[in-house]
Simulated assay, not measured.
Amino acid sequence: MKQDITKLASSNDISQFLYNIYNKLYEFWGPQHWWPAETKFEMVISAILAQNISWNSVEKAICNLKRANILSIEGILQTSDEKLAELVKPAGYYNQKTKRLKEFCNFLKKEFNSDLEKLFALDISSLRQVLLSQKGIGFETADSIILYGAEKPIFVVDSYTKRLFYRLGLIESEKISYNDLQAIIMANLTPQTKFFNEFHALIVKHCKEICKSKKPICNKCCLRLICNYFNE
Rank of each mutant, 00 (worst) to 15 (best):
N20W: 03
W29Q: 04
K97T: 08
K175S: 04
T98D: 13
L87R: 06
G136E: 01
K215D: 14
K109L: 13
L189D: 07
A9G: 00
D81I: 07
T141P: 07
Q78S: 13
P36K: 00
S80I: 07
L18E: 12
K205P: 04
H33M: 03
D115Y: 11
G169D: 05
F155H: 05
I45Y: 00
N20I: 09
E174T: 14
I154L: 09
S54L: 14
C218D: 14
R128F: 06
E174W: 00
E82C: 09
L116A: 14
D158R: 02
S133V: 08
E38N: 15
E82Q: 14
D81F: 12
L101E: 03
W29A: 05
E151T: 09
D81H: 10
K214C: 10
N106G: 15
E198D: 13
N20Y: 06
I226Q: 03
L77H: 08
I176T: 13
A121K: 13
V157E: 06
D13Y: 01
K208A: 05
C105Q: 08
W34R: 03
L116G: 13
A47L: 00
D4S: 14
F104D: 04
S46M: 06
Y148E: 10
T141A: 09
F17G: 13
T6I: 12
L147N: 10
M186L: 01
S15N: 12
K109Y: 08
K99S: 07
S125D: 15
F195R: 04
S72C: 08
K99I: 07
Y93G: 04
N231G: 02
F139S: 13
E111M: 11
D158N: 07
K102R: 06
K152E: 12
I171K: 01
T161H: 08
L202A: 08
I176C: 02
S177V: 05
S159T: 14
P216E: 12
N228F: 04
R100E: 02
V88H: 01
F195H: 08
N23P: 06
I124K: 09
W55Q: 05
S54R: 15
K175F: 00
W29I: 06
W55E: 10
T190P: 09
A183K: 14
K99D: 06
L147K: 06
K215Y: 13
H33D: 14
E172V: 00
F195N: 09
S133C: 06
Q134F: 01
I48E: 00
K110F: 14
V44L: 12
L189W: 02
A150W: 06
T141S: 13
Y178K: 05
Q32Y: 02
D123W: 03
L181G: 10
A68M: 03
A142Y: 11
W55L: 09
H200E: 10
I184V: 15
W34T: 05
W29P: 04
E74W: 03
P153I: 10
Q16E: 15
L119P: 11
F165N: 08
L131Y: 09
F17N: 10
N23W: 01
V204T: 05
I137K: 07
L87K: 01
L8M: 06
T6K: 10
R163H: 02
C63I: 15
S72I: 10
K220W: 01
I76M: 03
G92A: 12
A121S: 15
D4Q: 15
